[in-house]
């Protein structure tokens, strides 16, 4: 039995502790927003936060994150998340949408640590999250737009 803290709730799950966190989220907890695409840590579709850090859930054994605070796209909340989502809606960032939970998690993490990212900062923070549909420039526009919105609201 593992005890996982996900999006502020405590779950007890009966699962092999080696099971990647991704599949526990999807299959035991029914949180489908975190996506499987490569399973080897190459694409970022499965990005979640563990104690606030970007983490690739497809290569993270669930047993390793017991008791830590896990946040998924479903639990991503707060002013930065709101600003990102609003910007994503304004810019219509998603195409197929499959990579977008990972993109949004990474973008929110970037904005949390750097409220005024320039293009290089965006490249550095976002280049590990692949988008086969090529929404990269839309993501860039989205992050700039979210930063503006967020910084404006803070004032």
């Amino acid at each position: 039995m593992l005890t996982l803290r996900v999006n502020g709730k405590v779950h007890h799950v009966d699962v092999d502790p080696d099971t990647p966190l991704l599949w526990v989220l999807n299959e035991q907890l029914g949180l489908m927003g975190t996506k499987y695409s490569c399973g080897i840590g190459e694409c970022g579709a499965c990005t979640v936060y563990v104690d606030g850090e970007n983490t690739l859930s497809c290569i993270t054994p669930a047993g390793d994150v017991e008791g830590m605070e896990i946040t998924t796209i479903e639990g991503l909340k707060g002013p930065v998340a709101d600003a990102i989502r609003q910007a994503w809606i304004e810019e219509d960032v998603p195409q197929c949408g499959y990579c977008q939970p990972g993109q949004i998690m990474a973008a929110a993490a970037l904005l949390n640590s750097n409220p005024n990212p320039n293009d290089d900062d965006i490249d550095a923070a976002m280049s590990d999250i692949l988008c086969r549909c090529g929404t990269y420039q839309a993501i860039r526009r989205g992050i700039h737009c979210a930063a503006k919105r967020y910084n404006h609201e803070k004032k």
């Binding site: 489908m32 927003g33 975190t34 479903e74 989502r85 809606i89 998603p94 949408g97 977008q100 949004i104």
Partner: peptide
């Protein structure tokens, strides 16, 4: 289709 895709609720 944007809204459900930014909340992670879009069903693939």
């Amino acid at each position: 289709d944007t809204l459900e895709k930014v909340y992670g609720s879009a069903v693939f």
